[in-house]
Design a protein around this nucleic acid. Structure first.
Lengths: 342, 342
DNA sequence: GTGAAAGCGCTAACAC
DNA sequence: GTGTTAGCGCTTTCAC
């Protein structure tokens, strides 16, 4: 019995099967240079018959390009990142690129590790939802040394890198302004991690709306959440589980919204009478809940697609200064933000 | 002004910087063979100072292993697949592997294409949620030629491949039996795509529960959904938007459940009085909805982890016959499955 | 312990 | 149009 450890056919195998030189076979298979019709036919026939598949690894080693994009997200289980990933994949796959995926768990050390691992694997470019506001030197050095990097979701004004973000401040301001407009005066916020820049911007939007209405900022009403639903739940509970609880909540991320909904349900509170709610980022069941949940919606898939597009342009040779794409957000008012009981 | 197209340092660069031969530098860097302490120190110092990073591509070409796992899912935006992906990533990353991700959109042709692309990139192994019940010859041939394949989520009894699935039939049967127990007699089903084997098993569970209770199977009560929330919504509407609508619904996938919730809301029906509901696969807001939604929960992350584990074992040389891991499901009764109004 | 040299599978000069 | 040859960056014999 033959042990067949099929390691894959090489160009040479096809060449000898077709009775031509390795170079001719390579030319026919790679569709470059000039090959006579006869030779081409023999080669392709042999390749087809034997089931040849090009070793992209070897090709990449020569070409210096792997046709591979590294994507680093906080957690692919987070629907936001999953949708971003889908957007990126859609954008880059049409050009024949494939995604190498890594989770950072919003940890700077793990992010560094992921970026290094991806670079070692010679990705052509990187798309990163960075964990840190401050230290992006690693990413800038990657970019400087020829691996373009696109930052997503988290604005980095000083970064010399392409970025794709949304109008965090305007979105948050619109949400809070709306809550104020329908009569709320004490509005709690559950933020995402303070280390990520979008958190700061959304908080700025919150303050701007208060300022605009002449309301005083009360830091008691701001709680730091985190990247998980449980963080959001805890944050919301901290705000709601007391006598002088706010009459409305603004949750600054999708998982924070989930968490707040859970907290509100567990306390037996009614939306919007006991507490109104607006969340940043839309979600599948927002319209189905009773009442439907008001949200600041953002074009999540488009974030990924734009990032993919920017990266492909860099790979195609684009040399200009860092580009900053800011996508619009939109306030979608549904039932959950109705006026307070008063 | 110098043009610095930093292409990356090579072992030779480090070797000359350290004043040793390329081979010695490689040995020190790769931590194999024997190197004198002095030489090692010089090499590592130089590597560190210059910022050397190994080109894993070149290493992989020699080693014949890329430390890379290909993952093919229907759609990474689907929370089920996102969680599976996370589980796989967690399992394989500890061994230094990275995930290459591809979406098949539940299309057999795209799945084939993805598998080919991943194999060309020399992944060490593949984990696939296959789109087709019938044609897995491509995957079996991959496996036979040295790229181990683990099938997930969709049972393939005849496949000569490792598989990780859940107890679809038992889970579905428990759900429907419970609906019958609380008094329902006309129970509608919204399935996933009929082409995937889990759909068949869940439908078998439905029929088994009816049989057990002596109820007749009515094919009018079964509608084919699909892989999207919108498919589920349409399917549920077909069942609910008529006079003799069923008093309960069993949705056979998470997105079908989302879709059914949407359909129920749009029709203004009340759960569980107008229509009771149990869905296959738990979801983040299930406990938060009013009423909370009863589900058949499955260990989604564990599916991914087990698949990763089986694959790593194959890569480590495991030679035995195909292994079939069947994970348990559990019926979680919440408010949505309460008795009918009668 | 160390260096020279071969080779992984491919692309691409360079001759003929 | 075709074959010979070098080389991508690495690992790994094989002499010394």
């Amino acid at each position: 019995m033959a042990i067949l450890l099929a390691v894959g056919l090489t160009v040479s195998d096809i060449a000898s099967a077709a009775g031509v030189s390795q170079a001719t076979a390579a030319r026919a298979l790679g569709n470059y240079g000039s090959v006579s019709d006869g030779a081409r036919e023999k080669v392709l026939e042999a390749a087809n018959r034997l089931g040849y598949r090009r070793n992209e690894l070897a090709a990449a080693l020569v070409a210096g390009s792997t046709q591979t994009i590294g994507l680093v997200v906080g957690d692919i289980e987070n629907p936001f990142f999953a949708t971003v990933a889908r957007g990126v994949a859609d954008a880059v796959e049409v050009e024949g690129h494939t995604l190498l995926l890594a989770n950072s768990d919003e940890d700077l050390e793990r992010e560094r590790h992921a970026v290094e691992a991806l670079r070692s694997r010679q990705v052509d470019g990187l798309i990163v939802a960075s964990s840190s506001v401050e230290d992006i030197s690693l990413l800038e050095s990657a970019s400087a040394s020829g691996t373009p990097v696109v930052l997503i979701d988290r604005p980095m004004p000083d970064a010399k890198l392409d970025t794709v973000t949304v109008e965090n401040e305007a979105g948050a301001e619109a949400a809070v302004a709306h809550l104020i407009e329908v009569g709320h005066r004490r509005i709690g916020v559950v933020t995402d991690r303070p280390e990520i820049a979008s958190t700061g911007e959304r908080l700025d939007g919150y303050r701007a709306a208060l300022d605009q209405a002449g309301l005083e900022f009360d830091e008691e009403l701001v709680v730091e959440g985190g990247p998980s639903q449980e963080d959001g739940r805890r944050g919301a509970l901290k705000l709601l589980d007391r006598a002088d609880r706010p009459t409305a909540l603004f949750t600054a991320s999708n998982l924070a919204t989930y968490g707040a909904l859970s907290a509100i349900a567990s306390l037996g509170l009614t939306i919007p009478d006991d507490v109104a709610l607006i969340g940043f980022d839309d979600f599948p069941l927002a319209e189905v809940l009773a009442p439907p949940i008001s949200v600041v919606s953002q074009p999540v898939s488009q974030i990924g697609q734009e990032a993919g597009r920017l990266l492909l342009e860099r790979l195609a040779g684009e040399q200009g200064p860092p580009r900053r794409v800011r996508l619009k957000t939109a306030l979608t008012v549904r039932g959950s933000s109705g006026g307070p009981r008063s």
